[in-house]
Structures are given as C-alpha cells and as structure tokens.
C-alpha cells in the first residue's frame, strides 16, 4: 500500500534543513536551505511550496521519515515534532533514521565510510558503515571521541564525511575526505535509507518516537 502513496522525508538536525517528497521510491521534489535557528521560520513555507508544486496537500502524506539525532538539541526536536504531529493528526507511521546513517548514505558506495558530526564541547560523534547503492549497513556503532581519537580511529581506505571534518580534518594518503557539499545531511538520503523500511511496513507510531540527544541536558538555570 505504501508503494504508491506520497510521503515526506526531512532533516533539521544540523545547520540547514532539507525536505523531500516521494511517491513510493520515486522522488517528486526536494529542497534544502536555511540558516541556524531559522528552521522554524523556513521549513513550513518550504514544505507548503513543495507540496503545492507536487500537486499534493500536506494532509495527503501517508508516511514520514525523519532524522532523530544526533544533532543540535533544538534541530532534532524540530524535525521530530513535525513528524510526530503529522503522524498524530493523520495517523501516519514514522520512520526515524539515525543522522549518521543518513549522512553515510551521501557516500553512495564505499567499503568503509566514516560519518562524523561535530558534537561541540570539543567532541566528535561518529560511526562507520559499509555503503552499497546508497544504503549503509553499520560496521562500528556511534561513539563520542576527541578529535585526535577520531582521526586515529579511521581505518586506511576509508571515505570520511560530515561536519566532524571541520573540527578534525583527516590527512594523509590512506583516507579520502569527500567533498564538503556532501557533509550536510540530505532529506533525499534520509528517504533512501527509509524506503526499504517503508516497503516492509516497519514504521513506528508517534508515541514511540525518541530523540537521540547523545548528551544530557545542560543544567543551567534560566535567569530572566
């Protein structure tokens, strides 16, 4: 049933947002953009426009795939809240995708793809995948490392991508850093990763959606 119905994939965990509309495995339209802290203002007009261009109403969407972290706390919440609310209002399944997995999917092919994000506080969060036809399978689960640990952990022959490269740029002959335009998570990659799960009907209902914050909340009392 999911194969012909329109669905949405999105990412807002980083500095830019990205949206893609699909019908089954077919990409209908996509858009990306934005500045940090502007997701709330920019995503909704973009989604509205994207739907209109595709001749769809947001209420006609039948599934949502979304990155649930790691990422900025607010960014992770924004995407998940959007997905959760759509799911609740229209009784849709949600397909949460790990941000690092979606990032690795940008590599399309690779025996060892290291996807890393700048986790702030001088740390990097990263994981390693094998990627075939744009679909990652996990080789090493996500962990937090110092930039040096991160650099030391990358096996020879790996492809590396993500904002981690801003904090710790791998050098040398044996590691290849993918072009910087591939360092952003894309809704198209989120959708590609989610598609086999949609086909299998392996969705989550909204009450089960949990953000992957990675870190506990900063305990700093608000002073008005």
């Amino acid at each position: 049933m999911e194969t012909v119905k329109p669905w949405l994939s999105l990412d807002s965990t980083g500095e830019s947002y990205s949206l893609a509309l699909w019908r089954g495995p077919q990409l209908l339209a996509e858009c990306s953009g934005g500045q940090p802290r502007q997701h709330l203002v920019q995503i909704f007009p973009a989604l509205d426009l994207l739907c209109r261009q595709s001749g769809l109403k947001p209420g006609e969407l039948r599934a949502v795939a979304v990155t649930g972290g790691p990422g900025s706390f607010t960014g992770v919440r924004t995407g998940l809240l959007l997905a959760k609310t759509l799911a609740q209002a229209d009784d849709l399944p949600v397909y949460p995708v790990d941000t690092l997995e979606a990032l690795a999917a940008n590599a399309v092919e690779g025996d060892s793809v290291v996807a890393g994000l700048d986790a702030r506080k001088g740390e990097i969060i990263w994981a390693r995948y094998r990627v075939r036809q744009g679909l990652p399978s996990l080789l090493e689960p996500a962990r937090l490392s110092s930039p040096q640990e991160f650099l030391d952990s990358i096996p020879a022959g790996s492809l590396v991508l993500g904002s981690a490269c801003q904090a710790a740029l791998p050098g040398g002959e044996e590691v290849r850093v993918l072009p910087a335009d591939l360092w952003r998570v894309r809704a198209v990659s989120v959708g590609r990763v989610a598609w086999p799960r949609l086909q299998a009907g392996a969705g989550t209902s909204w009450p089960q959606l949990r953000p992957d914050y990675v870190r506990p909340a900063d305990v700093q009392v608000h002073r008005g």
Partner: peptide, 13 residues
Amino acid sequence: LVGVTVAKTLALA
C-alpha cells in the same frame, strides 16, 4: 519553539 512547531504542523496538516 515546541508549541509553535506543533501548532504550525497542525495548521498545515
């Protein structure tokens, strides 16, 4: 942001 994101999504959906 939490309330506004939910409300905007509902209004759109």
